[in-house]
């Protein structure tokens, strides 16, 4: 090959060389993510107890997902959790970020660190701690009793009505810090000139927020929405370590149903189908978020 300096191709060409670089990582990705995913899809078309020969049932498992009341309610609960894991932290995060970036006070970094801390703690630890807090003789009821609100004390995790919202609040607490940090960082990237010109035009705080802050945070909102809704839909450890889906079926979620079917009741095909259905839902939600929230100019 003739290779005079003038004719040597620029670095990085031929582009196809890039594939060689990603091959090692791709190998692991394929082996541990892609292959099992496709295999799950394949297994979901069978009725299989994990041990004996499987029976082909085509889309039968998916039909079960749509008709079995326990599975239906699991998916409904996942949607309820989106309210607590996603909408609530994002709203509160926006509010807090807007307020914090207007005021200039010392210790902002400390605040941010402390509020972000729940993100860093392992979910198992969070579950155990909150289980204590919600216990019938735990600190939450203790505080309510102390201020004279003993009529409001409830067995939070054992109550059919309150168990799911209680767990939702844990999610809000965990994800609030993440949203806050995301939005504060995002606001700092908005050019102050915009705010100045808005002020000149006589815009109040509320107008500013709607016209400048919110649109400027499009990218961060997309990230926040995506991360939080996926967390909500995928929730498993929190439920498993606190209520196991109980009492009754009042806190069951798709991931928990998947676990129980795969390991406890020998319904592996159905578990695979639940996994596939959940994946499809997560992808759809993520797609919708990107489409409608992110700035696609």
């Amino acid at each position: 090959m003739e290779a005079s300096t003038a004719e040597r191709p620029p670095p990085g060409e031929p582009r196809r060389i890039a594939y060689v670089y990603i091959l090692p990582a791709f190998f692991f990705y394929a082996a541990f993510v892609l292959l099992p995913t496709i295999q799950s899809g394949w297994l979901s078309l069978f009725d299989w107890n994990g041990l004996t020969a499987p029976t082909w049932i085509g889309l039968g498992n998916y039909l079960t997902i749509m008709t079995d009341p326990q599975l239906r309610i699991a998916f409904v609960h996942a949607l309820v959790l989106i309210l607590f894991y996603s909408l609530l932290p994002i709203s509160l995060g926006l509010l807090a970020a807007a307020m914090m970036s207007r005021a200039k006070f010392r210790g902002l970094t400390l605040f941010r660190t402390v509020l972000f801390l729940p993100q860093v703690i392992a979910t198992t630890v969070i579950a155990v701690v909150w289980r204590r807090i919600y216990a019938p003789q735990g600190p939450l009821n203790g505080v309510l009793n102390a201020v004279g609100l003993d009529g409001v004390t409830v067995n939070w995790l054992g109550d059919f009505n309150w168990a799911l919202p209680s767990l939702g609040v844990v999610g809000t607490w965990t994800l609030f810090g993440l949203c806050l940090v995301l939005f504060i960082a995002g606001i700092q990237n908005i050019s102050p000139d915009l705010y100045d010109s808005a002020k000149v035009d006589g815009a109040g705080a509320y107008r500013e927020f709607l016209a400048i802050t919110l649109p400027g945070l499009r990218g961060q909102l997309a990230v926040a929405f995506t991360l939080t809704t996926i967390t909500a839909l995928r929730t498993f450890d929190l439920i498993f370590l606190t209520t196991r889906g109980g009492p009754g079926t009042s806190t069951t979620v798709p991931a928990l149903e998947l676990y129980q079917r795969a390991f406890l009741t020998s319904q592996v095909g159905l578990a695979a189908a639940i996994g596939v259905a959940l994946t499809v839902i997560v992808f759809s939600v993520a797609y919708l978020i990107i489409r409608f929230v992110e700035d696609n100019e």
């Binding site: 099992p36 295999q39 394949w42 041990l51 004996t52 020969a53």
Partner: peptide, 9 residues
């Protein structure tokens, strides 16, 4: 690869 082989013992 993923679909090859009947699952189960």
């Amino acid at each position: 690869t993923a679909c090859s082989g009947v699952p189960g013992a």
